[in-house]
Amino acid sequence: MPRHEFQPGKLVAGLFLTAAGITYAGDAGGWWDTPWFAIIPVVTGGLCLAGAVAFLTHGIRRRRLRRRGAGVSG
């Protein structure tokens, strides 16, 4: 299996969307009552946090690549 780079932004988005799905599944199963609008801040917040994590990860990887490239060419 080929290796791929870890993308923590996708992990964060997946966790928040899974939490939203579990919340609605619990509501559908009758375990608790969830208002329809309760999921909006969970999904929106999760996607915003995932975007911030992806942006930060991209910056860190770019900086490491630039630093690694500068050391090799010298």
Rank of each mutant, 00 (worst) to 15 (best):
M1H: 14
M1A: 03
M1P: 14
P2D: 05
P2T: 08
H4A: 11
E5T: 02
E5H: 09
E5V: 00
F6T: 06
Q7N: 12
Q7R: 15
Q7M: 10
P8D: 12
G9S: 08
G9I: 02
K10N: 08
K10M: 10
L11V: 15
V12F: 06
V12A: 13
A13W: 02
A13N: 00
A13G: 14
G14T: 05
G14E: 12
G14S: 07
G14N: 04
L15N: 09
L15M: 12
F16C: 11
F16Q: 06
L17M: 13
L17I: 04
L17N: 12
T18K: 08
T18Q: 04
T18I: 09
A19L: 07
A20F: 07
A20Y: 00
A20G: 03
A20I: 03
A20T: 13
A20E: 15
G21L: 01
I22D: 13
I22R: 01
T23W: 15
Y24K: 15
Y24F: 08
A25E: 02
A25Q: 06
A25R: 04
G26S: 01
D27L: 07
D27P: 02
A28K: 02
A28V: 07
G29D: 00
G29C: 02
G30K: 04
W31E: 08
W31H: 06
W31A: 10
W32L: 12
W32Y: 09
D33A: 14
D33P: 04
T34S: 15
P35E: 01
F37E: 03
I39V: 09
P41Y: 09
P41C: 00
P41E: 07
P41H: 13
V42H: 05
V42T: 06
V43S: 01
T44P: 02
G45S: 11
G45N: 03
G46I: 01
G46E: 03
L47C: 00
C48L: 14
C48E: 12
C48V: 15
C48H: 04
L49E: 03
L49K: 10
A50D: 02
A50I: 02
G51D: 11
G51A: 12
A52D: 14
A52Y: 15
V53Y: 07
V53L: 06
A54W: 05
A54G: 07
F55W: 13
F55A: 12
F55D: 10
L56R: 15
L56G: 14
L56K: 13
L56A: 11
L56P: 08
L56E: 06
T57D: 15
H58F: 11
G59Q: 13
G59V: 11
G59I: 10
I60E: 01
R61D: 10
R61W: 01
R61Q: 09
R61M: 09
R62W: 11
R62P: 04
R63Y: 06
R63S: 14
R63A: 15
R63N: 05
R64I: 01
R64S: 08
R64C: 02
L65W: 08
R66S: 02
R66E: 05
R66L: 03
R66D: 03
R66G: 00
R67E: 14
R67P: 05
R68D: 10
R68I: 03
G69F: 04
G69R: 11
G69T: 13
G69E: 09
G69L: 13
A70H: 11
A70Y: 15
G71I: 02
G71Y: 02
G71K: 08
G71P: 00
V72T: 08
V72W: 14
V72C: 10
V72Y: 04
S73H: 09
G74H: 09
